[in-house]
Amino acid sequence: MLYTRRDLKTKGFVDHHVAMQRYLHKYFHDKKHFNKLKWHDKDFFYEYLQIVKDENGRYGFDLLKIPDAEEYLFEKIILIYASGNDSIDFAKKTSDYDGIISKKRQAQYMAVY
Rank of each mutant, 00 (worst) to 15 (best):
S87E: 13
D89F: 06
R105Y: 08
Q108W: 00
T94H: 07
K65Y: 04
R6S: 14
R58K: 13
F90T: 01
I88K: 03
D41Q: 08
E70A: 12
L79W: 08
D41A: 02
F74I: 14
A69P: 03
F74C: 15
Q106C: 13
G84E: 08
Q50E: 12
M110D: 03
H17I: 02
I78S: 03
V18F: 11
L2P: 00
H33A: 15
I77D: 06
A111R: 14
Y109D: 09
A111Y: 14
S87V: 06
I101K: 09
L63Y: 07
Y109W: 13
I101T: 07
I51S: 06
Y3G: 00
D68N: 05
Q108F: 02
T4W: 07
Y59C: 06
Y81K: 04
K76D: 13
D54I: 00
P67M: 04
D68L: 10
Y3V: 00
I100T: 15
F90M: 00
G60K: 06
F13R: 13
E75S: 13
L73H: 01
W39K: 11
V18K: 14
Y59M: 03
F13P: 10
R58A: 14
A111K: 15
Y3W: 01
K9I: 06
K36V: 06
R6V: 13
H40I: 05
K104Q: 11
A91Y: 08
K104M: 13
I100R: 04
H16V: 05
R105D: 05
F28L: 13
H40F: 05
K93F: 10
L49T: 00
G99R: 06
D68W: 00
V52K: 14
N85P: 01
Y72E: 04
M110G: 01
R6T: 13
L73E: 02
H33Q: 15
N35T: 15
L49E: 06
D86M: 09
D62C: 02
I101F: 11
G57R: 07
R5M: 09
T4E: 08
V52Y: 15
E71V: 09
N85L: 02
V112M: 12
I100G: 01
A82V: 05
R22H: 11
H33R: 14
